[in-house]
């Protein structure tokens, strides 16, 4: 296996684990068990990825293709992501337990610096029938879509090619004024992105 393959595995673990933290907080904020369960599945996926990385890196070091130092750095970065994924699972676990959430929990999540939001796209919205790559919501509104419900299917960490249609439900994260902008766009109140 090439070093680049390991590098992209490390990046996948890093990005997925950070997405999981956002998803787990969203699951609490919106009492959403589906999101919480997804965090569990992603955590298992990351565990597998980490195990594979571990094994394959040792193999490559043994064969002399990768230096011990490089392997050490890659493993430690991957371990950091794996631990963040574990933490996200612990957060999601609170949602999956059969206990009503303490009201303080939601308030704390709402009052933190980055706002989580949930919005349904209406038919006249400018967002309809466009891909996330075309819309550039991230750089235009500051809002990152972390998950969405599209045609009765859930998508987590959607990418550039993901298309938004009417009635999709978007879960996003970003600054407060970005949230207001995104809601206006989804409602069709403004066409200005």
């Amino acid at each position: 296996m090439k070093q680049e393959t390991f590098e992209s595995m490390v990046l996948t673990i890093k990005e997925q684990s950070e997405l999981m933290v956002d998803l787990s907080y969203s699951s609490l904020l919106y009492d959403n068990t589906t999101l919480a369960k997804e965090v569990y599945e992603l955590e298992e996926h990351i565990d597998h990825l980490f195990e594979r990385l571990h094994h394959d890196l040792f193999q490559e070091v043994k064969e002399g293709n990768i230096t011990v130092k490089t392997a050490q750095i890659l493993l430690k970065l991957a371990r950091a992501g794996e631990e963040i994924a574990d933490a996200a699972r612990e957060i999601a676990d609170v949602q999956l337990r059969d206990v009503e959430l303490h009201p303080i929990l939601k308030m704390s999540i709402q009052e933190s610096d980055e706002v989580l939001t949930k919005v349904q796209v209406k038919e006249p919205s400018i967002l309809c029938k466009k891909t996330l790559g075309q819309l550039k919501l991230g750089s235009e509104t500051g809002m990152t879509i972390i998950a969405m419900r599209h045609n009765n299917k859930w998508l987590y960490g959607p990418n550039k090619n993901t298309r938004i249609d009417a009635f999709d439900i978007l879960f996003a994260k970003g600054p407060e004024d970005g949230e207001a902008h995104l809601i206006e766009l989804a409602d069709g109140i403004t066409d200005e992105i």
Binding site: L28, E90, R97, V99, H102, L105, S108
Partner: peptide
């Protein structure tokens, strides 16, 4: 309920 807070 409080144990949920502590877990977070």
């Amino acid at each position: 309920q409080l144990s949920g807070i502590l877990q977070i």
